[in-house]
Amino acid sequence: MVILFINNHGGGFADHIEVAEATTVADLFEERLPGCRAEDFLIRVNRQPASADQVLQAGDRVSMTPTKIEGAR
């Protein structure tokens, strides 16, 4: 199934991606942001807060935004 995945980490992009049926938010996070900690991200599904075990549905809009990001001067 296809979902809209918005990754605001690093380059920051939005793209339609293919994910397996029964993929959870935690699965997607691990797959797309390996090495990162979920607690350092604001994760939304269809603009609403999501739990780690929430199963994604076709057409979902998933955004992952870092909450700890380094500014500069």
């Binding site: 605001n8 980490h9 690093g10 380059g11 920051g12 992009f13 939005a14 870092p66 990001i69 380094e70 500014g71 500069a72």
Partner: peptide, 10 residues
């Protein structure tokens, strides 16, 4: 914005 510059622009 440092590291956030590019994602903000996108």
């Amino acid at each position: 914005a440092g590291d956030a510059s590019v994602p903000i622009r996108k």
